[in-house]
């Protein structure tokens, strides 16, 4: 995190919504080490390359015990917010965010959160005409972090990078390993052939199966509000997970499945989008998407 090209700016921890609370100067400029969350903007390579999409990301580093809210179906929290501010002609491409962790709280509350270190991908399209310049990319980041108590925070993070000519292959940055780490937790579309995970409707429930799995979980998207008793049914030891619907009007189930395997093999993450058959009790095989249709 000490990579030279990263300009990490002003982690603000403010009291506020609606400009409600005035900035607390002490907190705003306090030592970063004591902040529950630090944000920075990082790039996978030492230079941007003109005329293509470049791999950047907002890195969140949370202090022990703290979590922030992932964009999935949550009982509480506030969504993370990224507002990029880019030079003219630059554009942010949609990207799948890393899979979250389930967090259950007293009162039967279930949230999907990020803890520890998480890189939120921010693919940036750099125009061909930017070659040879040096640009500053900025992102405004807003969050709520909680441990036992919650805090709101925000920061302006930025990164100055030279833009290499189209076709260049710049060296990886010191932050490149973070991108590999994030990819390992980024949901993938299910392969069309030989998928290790299947989803099928059985007696009105969506049943996920991953032969050989030791643990399965389903993290519903924020707009999927159709699964009954998610606290108890959303994760299970073994290779089978049954998700009963709680909403007759639901037309599709969307979210991310995590599959953990025996023998120290890395877990797999798949994006699922499954249509609900018109008669939920009817046994029907639901097609799974060939590619990720979900644009974040």
């Amino acid at each position: 995190m000490l990579a030279a090209p990263k300009l990490q700016i002003v982690p603000l921890v403010l009291g506020l919504l609606a400009g409600a609370a005035p900035a607390q100067d002490g907190a705003a400029h306090g030592p970063a080490a004591s902040a529950p969350l630090r944000a920075s903007l990082v790039a996978e390579a030492r230079e941007l390359v003109a005329g293509r999409t470049n791999s950047l990301g907002v890195l969140l580093e949370l202090a022990d015990g703290w979590h922030t809210y992932a964009p999935f179906l949550n009982d509480s929290g506030l969504p993370l917010r990224l507002q990029p501010e880019l030079p003219e002609g630059f554009a942010v491409r949609p990207a799948e965010w890393p899979a979250p962790q389930r967090l259950q709280s007293e009162g039967d509350l279930l949230d999907h959160v990020y803890a520890g270190r998480v890189l939120l991908p921010l693919p940036v399209e750099v125009p061909a005409g930017a070659a040879g310049t040096t640009v500053t990319l900025r992102v405004h980041v807003g969050w709520m972090v909680c441990r036992s108590a919650c805090q709101l925070g925000e920061a302006d993070v930025s990164l100055e990078l030279p833009v290499a000519a189209a076709g260049a292959s710049p060296q990886p940055s010191a932050d490149a390993p973070l991108f590999a780490e994030a990819r390992a937790r980024t949901p993938q579309p299910l392969p069309a052939q030989g998928a290790p995970l299947s989803a099928a409707w059985e007696s009105g429930a969506l049943v996920l199966r991953a032969p050989g799995a030791t643990w399965l979980a389903f993290y519903p998207d924020a707009d999927t509000a159709a699964i009954a008793d998610l606290i108890r049914s959303g994760a299970s030891d073994g290779s089978r997970l049954a998700l009963a619907l709680s909403d007759d009007a639901a037309t599709r189930v969307r979210g991310v499945a995590e599959v953990r395997w025996a023998g120290g093999r890395a877990p797999s993450f798949y994006r699922l989008e499954v249509s609900v058959p018109s008669a939920p009790g009817r046994a029907a095989r639901a097609p799974l998407p060939q590619e990720n249709p979900h644009v974040r």
Partner: peptide
């Protein structure tokens, strides 16, 4: 000089 984008973050949980 800058384009201000609000990344959709579709899932952006509550907002959506």
């Amino acid at each position: 000089l800058f384009a201000v984008l609000v990344v959709g973050l579709a899932g952006s949980a509550v907002a959506q």
